[in-house]
Amino acid sequence: CTRGALRYVTTANLYNRWGDLEDLFVPGLGGCQGCNTELIMRHTLRRVGSNTVLATPPGCIPGMGSVGYNGMLGCKVPVFHPLLTNTASMLTGIRRQYKRKGRNVTALALAGDGGAGDVGFQSLSGAAERGEQILFICVDNEGYMNTGAQRSGSTTYGAWTATTPIGESARGKTQDAKNLPLLMMWHGCEYVATASTAFMEDFYAKLEAALDASQRGFAYLHLYSPCTSGWRFPSASNIEVARKAVETNFAVLWEYRRDQGLKLSRDIEDPAPVTEYLKLLGKFRHLDATQIAHIERHVAEQAQVLRELARMHPREGRQVVGHQSDLMA
């Protein structure tokens, strides 16, 4: 049996299950060619369905027209621009008011890493602490891409951005990215997970779990989203970049349930060299050996932290759920 054939069974399953559902964004959105974020948005909303209020804080997501332009709408569910800073708070008010009126409406956020983890972090943290029944999805493209690819708290060490340029005395960002999903886990959310579009079945499973958890408390999904324009790679390589990030442990897939602790979603014991990932991206082209060593060390440390956390799993111990990783590797 070829790997292709198995993969085809899996992907066709997803299609058979969800492909017939109406895409709840309009056919034309202004995302860049090959935009991973647009891919995430369309799959997410199709799955979450129309009994939803969607918040899209400023960034690429509304920038591509989700909320609309001059009276024309980009989305088939009620959708709005929160401020960059208050997504989780506005959703708090919405969800609680409908609950008060006896209606079960999904409160969904599709936010960038800035609106989730930088300037948006206070409201996100507050809502998570209060256990608001919100499904908050952070689409992490590691920077402020809608404004021209500037540095954010999620930008990788060493990366070029418009505000961490390369010059005589500067070689990109000088700090590591903050680990936002782990920070959210420590809030004691109902559900926290990381996912990637290169592992769609895993993503769909986590979306389903998050949606379910958001009926009880705060659910946070962190989606790793390569940006063809800001990271400088050809649009056709998008899924390849996403896949390589996971295979090198640069982006580790895991999930946390409040009552079960953290589990790794796939085997991370034998990662491909991080350089295989770094070399795909223009934003890393200038890296010197020291910088590469720094990133390698950081990736290894993060993996080790997650390994330890998974070992502390209160019920089942460390567990690898890797059905897709085998198929898609």
Binding site: L21, L24, G74, V77
Partner: peptide, 27 residues
């Protein structure tokens, strides 16, 4: 899945900015 859009014909166009027609942009 979609529910019919809000009928804004009776709403003054000078209140809160709202979008009640699907964008016809095709890329």
């Amino acid at each position: 899945q979609a529910v019919p859009l809000f009928d804004a014909s009776a709403i003054p166009k000078t209140l809160c900015p709202i979008a009640t027609e699907y964008s016809r942009m095709l890329p």
